[in-house]
Design a protein around this nucleic acid. Structure first.
Lengths: 191, 191
DNA sequence: ATGTGTGTAGACCGATCTGTCTACTTAGGG
DNA sequence: CCCTAAGTAGACAGATCGGTCTACACACAT
């Protein structure tokens, strides 16, 4: 019997990630998860709350995955590890993440374009927390805070760019290209 | 009464760009454009074909805009011009493009995630043609084809990254940050 | 034993979806 | 003059949408 709420969120995430949110009705989430409609509306006031829960679910899963892939490395090696992790993700070599269909948070932001919408805000917050993880790794390597921040922002641009290139243009090598650029930037600040 | 087809496509694009495709029904496109339903289905077999037409419409408009913003400059200056153009776009300082709601092609790819879907393919093709325009500008500055291609790919990663950061995280300075990185890359290949 | 919380199955509601259709209008060319 | 193409308004069809509701089942704590 376990946790019906989590079953719902997992099934919803799988469908939303693959096909988009507005393209997937709650009835499909229910038939896929084998859970009754009443149970869904017992746990969530409405579809939007289920959507928010899937965003938070993916947020936790992604951060956990990223922290695991970056643990025990710092500085230059952490940057390599970051883009290697993306490369594994894009090419389906990491079971922890679902088959690659782009970044869920970018996709959700595309469907909830209003920056003030709570769901869009969750996506923005996710990106902030991902950056925070990488920032910690860089801080171990650089002492100048301003330089660290500039480098971090460059690395995040490359990361988002790689995800988009991999998904929209189908360039599954994008992460490795981003890694090359990142290495060059690291070298230029003497790290 | 002018071109009804184009009126439909323009109205559809405005709505699709702002609110997403699956969130906008054809009835809303019709009431917004003041055109009869029969006329829509006279010009398009179905909604998907209207969507494809809006993608092509935006593709043409965006390429025209980009070429205009890059005309009469090449090499280093073209790179500056590229990211300055993005900056104007993000911050609503360019009337040629609609108010910024992210990249339409990234957004559409989020809703049509299957890389084999014709509409997704159009988005991929758009990205290829944007890269081609920048490639021409770089070729005037570098003679080594391989170096040019590597630099181009780095610039495209930064461009996509900036668009995503601007839209998802709301960082309207993203284009300027990308420009800084791009300049550093240019300098490192001696351009 | 009896309520309370959590669950199932699925009918049902009104709204909205894409798409079709009828009936009528208008403009232009042979 | 009349035929055709392109247009309007809007009813309509069948499916699906998000969401509510009834009726029932089981577990468990008071």
């Amino acid at each position: 019997m376990v946790d019906k709420r989590e079953q719902l969120v997992r099934a919803a995430f799988d469908l939303f990630y693959r096909d988009g949110i507005h393209a997937v009705g709650v009835n499909r989430v229910l038939s896929e998860s084998g859970i009754a409609k009443k149970t869904l509306y017992h746990h969530f006031p409405g579809k939007d709350d289920l959507v928010a829960a899937t965003v938070e679910y993916r947020h936790n899963a992604f951060l956990l995955w990223l922290e695991h892939r970056l643990e025990a490395v710092a500085g230059k090696k952490a940057v390599d590890a970051l883009y290697d992790a993306l490369d594994d993700w894009f090419n389906g070599r990491d079971d922890a993440l679902q088959p690659f269909h782009g970044c869920f948070f970018i996709n959700v932001s595309a469907e909830f374009g209003d920056p003030e919408h709570p769901i869009h805000r969750l996506c923005a917050e996710h990106k902030r927390q991902v950056a925070a993880i990488v920032r910690c790794k860089l801080a171990a390597c650089l002492d100048d805070n301003e330089k660290t921040e500039q480098l971090l922002e460059a690395l995040m641009l490359l990361k988002e760019g790689a995800i988009v290139q991999a998904h929209v243009a189908g360039d599954k090598q994008a992460a490795l290209k981003a890694k090359d650029v990142a290495r060059m930037l690291l070298a230029s600040v003497g790290c």
